[in-house]
Each structure stands twice: as structure tokens, then as C-alpha cells.
Design a protein around this nucleic acid. Structure first.
Lengths: 162, 162
DNA sequence: TATTGTTATACTCTATAACTATA
DNA sequence: TATAGTTATAGAGTATAACAATA
């Protein structure tokens, strides 16, 4: 048992850099810029992030909800929404239930960009995984889902009290 | 075959948000700040990133090599190295082979912070995975390694020519 | 002439504070 | 009095340009 624990830690230690690397590949590394270029769009990262939040949710969101999903402060979203609205990629609606709030939704143009962006990224992942067996892909998807769920749950469980 | 392909794409589409989420958990989400707090250190993110680069490589690096690993421009590294040097977390050495270059290495203090940081993160991952069977962990580690390798290889293969 | 690194400068991203309108 | 959002302001992170020293 002690051996098993020690082995696990050693193994995990060798994996940690890869998890970090994956995080960097997704965020830094110019992956997003490359995909934007591939689809002929030129949004900055905050703008893209807003559009993807709306796209992945599939419905109109309040400004605060977008900020929560992006994990940024409210004013940051407000500012970038101005740009997106001017470019007719999103539009604001009144919230019938609360007149303080503002609902934001994608225009067809905005939805098109989001969809092409996601499709491009999917294509790249598919190519990177083209040498994998269907079983390995499936297993990887399952375990990755489980891992993100468990890790996010751990973080939120330990984040509030300790 | 067509069905298999379509199924794969649909599956991948459902996984992509999780890969993005994992990237966000690693980079945004305050995970790093939390770990810094847990070990009683107070480095900013660029400083931490420099120290981790040195720690993971395990040897002295040139300024340009650090910048490459962090995927940032050179002057950014130079600036933050000043701070780290003033705090005695890294120190610069002359490169005997090339007098233009400067080698940077961790001091014991710097190495201590890097090690405690990594150990803290490892502990958290271990806790998040505490409900997993050893077989599932092992499989996840293997596939994650393979995925980051394959994806990084795909990006660098397609990045230069097309 | 090309490369390593630094200094100087400017731009992007994001947070905090102060405020307005509605609840 | 509390909440949703905006405006104004400030600070961190990062890039580009200009330069110095060595190759």
C-alpha cells in the first residue's frame, strides 16, 4: 500500500507538467489566433471568449452571467460588449423580468463565427488524434470528462471553507 | 464508417468544452494564487512561471530559453528576472561558451518555492483523484501524455508550412 | 552580418472604485 | 438597502523598437 501510494505520486509528478502544458497550449501558444486566422475573423481574445460563452450556452445571457463564465470582473465584459455590438456580432435585449438587467445574445454573424471557430478547433483535435484507435479516444474522452468534473468539484469544495 | 466518423465528431464536440475548461482551471481560476498562498509565498505569475521553467528543466537556462518555454518575448523575461534576482530566488551566471549569453539558475530559496508549489498542486490533484481506481488513474495519465504529445506535434508540424 | 540580451516605450487585458437605475 | 450594470481609472502582463555587446 505504501508502495502503491509512492508510485502514484511519482507518476502524478510526471504528469503534472503535461497538464500545465495542455493548459498553455489551449490559452497561450497562439492556438486561438491561429483558428481566428483560419476562419478569416479577427476578434481579440476577450471578444472571442464572450462569443464562445454565448455559443456554448446556447441562449441569451445576462452580463453578469457572461462575466462569471469567463471568470472576469463585470466591467471587462461591458467594455468588450460595446465593440461586439458595434460590429453586430451580439445584440442586447431587455430582460422582461428585471429591468436593471440586460440580456445579450448572438446575432447570426456572431453565431457563425463561433460555430466556425469551434469546428476548426475540432478538426485540429481530430487530426491530432487520427492515429488513435476508437477505443482509446472514447476512453480518453470519458476520463477527461471525469477528471475535469472531479477537479472542478474539488476546487469549489475546498475554496469556500478550507 | 461514415457513422463512426460522425459519432466521433459528435463525441469530440462534447469534449472540447472540457479541454477548454481544463485550460481555464489551470491558468485563470486563481489556482496558482491559491497554491502560492498555501505555501506562504507571493510571487506574481510571470515570476512563478520563470521559476517553474527552471525547476522543471532542472538546469541553468539562458534568458532566451526561458522565454521560449514560457512562450513570451525576451524583454518580458529580462524584466521579471530583475525582481527574482533582487529577491535572491535566481542568480545569473556567465555562459563560458558564449559571452553574449547569460545563464540563469535557481538559488536554494527559489528551488524551495518551486518544489513546494509543485508538491502542493500534486496533493490537490491526488485528492481530486482519490475516488479513482489505480487502473483508471494509470490509463488517464498514459492517454493524457499521449494526447499532449500528439497535439503539440500536430501544432508544430502544421505551424511552419501549412 | 547575425544573434543574445537589455532598455525604453506602448498596448492589451483585467481589476477596483464610484456611480446610476431598478428592485 | 441590495443588486445589475456602466463609466472612469489604475495596474499587471506582454509586445515591439532601438540599442549594445559578442559571435
Amino acid at each position: 500500500m505504501a508502495d502503491t501510494e509512492a508510485g502514484d505520486v511519482a507518476e502524478l509528478r510526471s504528469v503534472l507538467p503535461r497538464i500545465m502544458q495542455l493548459g498553455n497550449l489551449m490559452n497561450r501558444s497562439g492556438l486561438g489566433e491561429r483558428a481566428m486566422k483560419a476562419i478569416g475573423a479577427d476578434l481579440d481574445r476577450p471578444g472571442l471568449s464572450i462569443i464562445l460563452s454565448l455559443h456554448m450556452t446556447g441562449k441569451a445571457l445576462r452580463v453578469g452571467e457572461i462575466a462569471d463564465r469567463m471568470q472576469v470582473a463585470g466591467p471587462h465584459v461591458t467594455r468588450h460588449l460595446h465593440v461586439l455590438e458595434r460590429r453586430r456580432l451580439v445584440r442586447g435585449l431587455a430582460d422582461p423580468d428585471d429591468r436593471r438587467a440586460r440580456l445579450v445574445e448572438l446575432t447570426p454573424d456572431g453565431a457563425g463565427i463561433a460555430d466556425r471557430y469551434v469546428t476548426t478547433l475540432l478538426g485540429w483535435f481530430g487530426e491530432a488524434l487520427s492515429g488513435w484507435s476508437p477505443e482509446d479516444r472514447r476512453t480518453f474522452y470519458d476520463l477527461l470528462l471525469r477528471f475535469t468534473d472531479d477537479f472542478a468539484a474539488f476546487l469549489s469544495a475546498t475554496g469556500e471553507d478550507g
